[in-house]
Computed example of a mutant assay.
Amino acid sequence: MRQIILDTETTGLSWADGDRVIEIGCVELLNRQLTGNNLHYYLKVDRDSHPDALRVHGITTEFLRDKPGFEQVVDEFLHFLHDAELIIHNAPFDVGFLDSELRRIGRPPLGQHVLGVVDSLVLAKSHFPGKRNSLDALCDRFDIDKSSRTLHGALLDSELLARVYIHLTRGQEALLVSGEEEATEQPDSRQPQAQDASPLDFALALDLPVVYACEQELQAHEAVLAGIDKDSQQATVWRQLSAAV
């Protein structure tokens, strides 16, 4: 799968109030591996950065004076994103700004050019509810070196987010890779097929550890079942099935 980690820097916080995109950074992942095929723009706009935004990214109007406008890079930008899945931290912010830039030049919104958008902030919150899930906090949590991040920058932040995303989805990666390897191999007549495979067969096929209950745990489990059976006046389904067998 081809995925693009994307980040922007802007003149302020509100595209609806006329703030603009002044930097775009894109980092490519192919089958969850960094390829080094990245895309980066600084963009000239007709608006100065708000002082608070300037303190965050340090990109001045003077620096942007000789840079291209969004309309000059849009074709290359959209071609790079075409048919990829985007990974964006706090996606509504960046997508809102990019949609505004596309609207200015009469282009369809971002969603019509890509396979989909994954919000890594939502993903992080599902993994770490109630904790700080900023890019800085996640880098600290996963021990990712961010020492070069003195100011926010779209390309650097995309590179950091790519590493964060790989950590966030590492458990999923193990299952997916194992599944893909099984799918590419020729069927083995000695292995159970999908239609008659048990959960244990599936676990063994993925090389997952199988931990069996000890005698004490089995007895405790039986005691719980007996209690449920007593409370239901012997109406539990498993007792009826056992009796029938």
Rank of each mutant, 00 (worst) to 15 (best):
S242A: 13
P209S: 12
D119Q: 05
N90I: 06
G227S: 14
T150S: 06
A205F: 01
F97I: 14
H50R: 15
S198I: 09
G179I: 00
E9V: 07
L151G: 03
E159H: 06
S189T: 11
A223V: 09
D75G: 12
M1T: 05
S158W: 00
A91T: 10
E217Q: 05
D157Y: 03
V117W: 02
K67M: 08
K44N: 14
V21A: 07
L121P: 04
K67A: 05
R239S: 12
D19G: 08
L39E: 15
N38C: 05
R20C: 09
E101M: 05
D66C: 12
G130C: 01
D17R: 14
F97L: 13
L160C: 13
V73L: 03
D231H: 11
H221S: 15
V211F: 09
H50N: 12
S120W: 01
V73R: 02
H40V: 01
D140Q: 14
A220C: 11
D48H: 11
D231Y: 05
E28Y: 03
T150Q: 15
V118R: 05
L206K: 04
T169C: 07
V95H: 00
G111K: 07
R65G: 01
I105G: 04
D17K: 12
R170Q: 10
D201C: 08
L208S: 04
H40A: 06
L86S: 01
H40G: 02
E76W: 03
N37W: 09
K131M: 08
A244N: 08
H221C: 15
I24F: 01
D145G: 14
V118W: 06
I228C: 06
R103W: 07
I144L: 09
D143R: 07
K131Q: 11
A162H: 04
D207V: 03
A197F: 04
L102N: 03
T61F: 03
A154Q: 02
R132P: 10
R149A: 12
W238E: 10
S120H: 02
Q233C: 02
A84K: 04
F63D: 11
H167I: 03
P199F: 14
D17I: 05
A226K: 08
R163D: 09
Q33I: 03
V118T: 08
L43N: 01
N38G: 15
S14L: 14
E222H: 05
H57E: 12
L168V: 08
P187S: 12
F77H: 02
Y165R: 00
L176R: 11
G171W: 14
D46C: 07
E76V: 12
D188L: 15
L156W: 11
L168R: 04
C139D: 15
P129I: 06
Y42P: 00
R239Q: 13
S147Q: 08
W15L: 00
A53S: 06
